[in-house]
Every structure is written in structure tokens, then in C-alpha cells.
């Protein structure tokens, strides 16, 4: 019987002014630290800065490289994997089309003049429709993944099983796992392919940006100011599920318009009871037993449009 992670620490972006090593030191974590940089894709091994930052004690799990090896040595699984990804992309496209219309309807309702009680009821109904669509899409993605797992049992295939054993051995010698960001879908796929979540056994887990997003129950993509379109958040897929009821929002400085109450409110309501948590650079928060411990510069989006600093020991997963 494996133990759940000792605690999960979510951090802000580490690229320019990292604070990971400070946190590791403050928690008195000794020994090697496993790292995942698969979100960097082909640049996975360009991890010298991270290695130095962690006092040269990191061990990269090389999930991207391992996945490439699996796909080379198991062409059947590779073909099935590509087919599944193609299916997920189609579903994402159609979900996006429907989502745009639901969001447009909510926008029109919000800007209409009508008696407040009517407006409130209509807006609530509109947001419910968006939530239903998000949940429907999430269920669709989960079904596609479950069907793939049942049909192919990837963890039992020789190439995957061999790599899983190696990953398990590395993790067994490490007190912590650090998951870096990058391409969130690529990272998520590699972590799911090797079932990294199930191989943890009581380690600390540190994660930032896409790494933090991949740990949740669902991965929410977002950018309030893209060069095209209204900047609507969308559900990508289910995540590893290591973090319950929290939607990590990295890079709020550049990706979120936190001064726009309507946007904040919509985001909070769409993903409730999940708490949308902003993670700016240098921020961090420890998640343990359903509570936010030692939050530093992290905030939660509220349904009333307010962005509120998270207080220590706030319960997020009742």
C-alpha cells in the first residue's frame, strides 16, 4: 500500500527568479530530488539551471525521452496513442465552438437591462449551462482515456512497464518530486502514460506553472488577453487528480485581468467548488489534508468578482 504525497507545494513560475530551493531548504528535505521536465518536450534535458538551483541533487525522470522510446519500440501503442490524441483534439475543437456560444450568451445577458431578479436568475442559468458543458467535455475526455486504457492497458505493455519500474526505483530513493511547467498537454500525457501519480510513496511534491496545472482533477487552460478571441478559459482534460478542488492559475500577472470583476466572477463560478488559485512569481502554498498551509502571495478568485488573499489554514476541500 503506497502513501499519498506527504504534501503538495504549488509555486509561481521558476524561470527568472526561482524560489524552489529556498522552500526545499526551509522544509529540511534531504537527499535526491526527482524532477520532471517533460513539459519542455525536446528540451527536456536542458535542465542544468534547475539541477544547479537544487544543489546538484536532482534526478530527471526523463519522461519525454522515455515516451519517445516507448513509441519507437511499441508502434501499435504509438499508433493508438496518436489516434486517441486526434480524437481528443476533435472533441476539444467542438467543445470550443459550443463554449464560445455559451459564453457569448452569458455576456449578452450580463449587459442587458432588466429587473435585477430576472437578470440574476437568467445569468445563473447561463452559468449553469457553461458548467454543464465544461463537465460534459471533461466526462467525454475521461471516457476516451478510460476506453484507451481498457483497450491497451499501457502500464502492462513491456516497454511502458520497464520504464515504470525504473521510474519507481528512482522515486524510491528520492524525498521529493519537482514538476516543472511547459506544454501542459504534453506533460500531462507523459505523466499519465507512466502513471507517475501512482508511483509516489509519501514524497513531497513541488510543482509550478503547467506542472501545477497537471496535478489537478481537471486542467483548465486560460489567457484573458490572447491576440485573438475573447480570451475564454477552457477545460482541456482531466488531470492527475493529486490536487483536489484547486484550479491552479500560474502567470496571473500576464494571463489574467484580475481587475475585471465579471471575468473573475465567471471563472470562480465555472469551476466551483474548485478554488481558482493565482500563483504569481515567487508565490507558494502548501496543500495538506484539504488545507492551504503557509500561503505566500497566493489569492483565490471569488464568485462576487473579488480576488482575495488566501489566509493560512483555509480549508479548500471539505
Amino acid at each position: 500500500m503506497r502513501n499519498a504525497p506527504r504534501a503538495i507545494v504549488l509555486l509561481g513560475a521558476q524561470r527568472f527568479d526561482p524560489n524552489l530551493s529556498e522552500l526545499v531548504a526551509s522544509l529540511e528535505i534531504d537527499g535526491p530530488i526527482a524532477t520532471i521536465t517533460a513539459g519542455w518536450q525536446e528540451r527536456e534535458s536542458d535542465d542544468q539551471d534547475l539541477h544547479e538551483h537544487l544543489g546538484r541533487r536532482s534526478v530527471n525522470l526523463r519522461l519525454h525521452e522515455r515516451a519517445e522510446d516507448v513509441f519507437r519500440s511499441d508502434p501499435e501503442l504509438h499508433a493508438a496513442h496518436r489516434k486517441r490524441q486526434e480524437l481528443l483534439r476533435h472533441k476539444q475543437d467542438f467543445y470550443r465552438i459550443r463554449l464560445e456560444h455559451e459564453l457569448a450568451a452569458a455576456h449578452v445577458i450580463r449587459t442587458r437591462r432588466a429587473p435585477p431578479e430576472i437578470l440574476a436568475a437568467e445569468l445563473a442559468a447561463s452559468i449553469d449551462s457553461i458548467r454543464e458543458l465544461d463537465q460534459w467535455h471533461l466526462a467525454q475526455c475521461a471516457r476516451v482515456r478510460d476506453e484507451f486504457d481498457q483497450a491497451w492497458r499501457p502500464h502492462e505493455r513491456r516497454a511502458v512497464a520497464r520504464h515504470r519500474r525504473e521510474i519507481e526505483q528512482v522515486l524510491a530513493g528520492c524525498a521529493a518530486l519537482a514538476v516543472a511547467g511547459g506544454h501542459v498537454a504534453s506533460l500531462l500525457n507523459r505523466m499519465l502514460l507512466f502513471g507517475v501519480g501512482e508511483l509516489l510513496d509519501g514524497q513531497w511534491v513541488f510543482a509550478w506553472t503547467a506542472g501545477a496545472m497537471a496535478l489537478g482533477e481537471r486542467v483548465v487552460l486560460f489567457h484573458d488577453s490572447p491576440p485573438q478571441g475573447p480570451g475564454a478559459a477552457e477545460v482541456l482534460d482531466r488531470g492527475l487528480g493529486l490536487v483536489k478542488n484547486v484550479v491552479p492559475l500560474p502567470h496571473p500577472e500576464t494571463r489574467l485581468r484580475l481587475d475585471e470583476a465579471d471575468r473573475v466572477s465567471l471563472m470562480a463560478q465555472r469551476f466551483s467548488p474548485g478554488v481558482c488559485v493565482t500563483l504569481p512569481a515567487r508565490s507558494h502554498v502548501t496543500l495538506r489534508e484539504g488545507r492551504f498551509e503557509a500561503p505566500h502571495d497566493v489569492s483565490a478568485l471569488r464568485a462576487d468578482g473579488v480576488v482575495e488573499a488566501i489566509a493560512p489554514d483555509t480549508v479548500y476541500a471539505p
Binding site: 511547467g181 501542459v184 490572447p226 491576440p227 485573438q228
Partner: peptide
């Protein structure tokens, strides 16, 4: 150019969080 190119060839902005 930004408006045109990013509409014709959307980048991975929504997928990448470094």
C-alpha cells in the same frame, strides 16, 4: 501582422505555461 498571423497560424499560447 500580429492580428493576421496569429489568426491564420494560432500559436501554442493556451497550452504552454513555462
Amino acid at each position: 501582422l500580429r492580428e493576421g498571423l496569429s489568426w491564420l497560424y494560432p500559436g501554442p499560447l493556451l497550452m504552454v505555461y513555462e
